[in-house]
Amino acid sequence: MLYTMENRTQVEAAAELAELKNLEMVGFVEAAKDPLWVWPVIGLLAGVFLASFELESPVVSIVATIAYVVGIAVLVGTVVHRRRVQPRVTNMPASLNRLFLFYMLGVAVVAAIIMGLGFGVSFILAGIVAFPLVSVGGIFYHVRWRAAVSELATS
């Protein structure tokens, strides 16, 4: 098929837009490849952190807080440096944005449950409950993220 000069420009512009859309997705595609084992590690850190409050010792609490913050920082830093890209969390595609909001809501619900258990029953129980909730919830979110990214990348 022969194109007029004007049409040729339009065809090229359409191809360029499609290519740009693909390139804009690469950060999300890479993040979807992150290993699932990070979630049980986060769950374990959260569980130990919460359980430490049962001792009611300021020194233990401070050490546990520092260990938790440093542990999360090292974990996130390792994952980001390994994948070499940090996708944006604002102005994401609508399906990813919905998923992220759903995740944040899930975090709030889980936090409310474990804090309720901690203050109402026992921080050891809160830590024990936090581990599977954070692990399974995180993996569930991650698998949904992979599916949403895969759908976007092929559309």
Partner: peptide, 8 residues
């Protein structure tokens, strides 16, 4: 385009 979809 790559940068537009990412933070870093």
């Amino acid at each position: 385009a790559v940068l537009a979809g990412t933070e870093w």
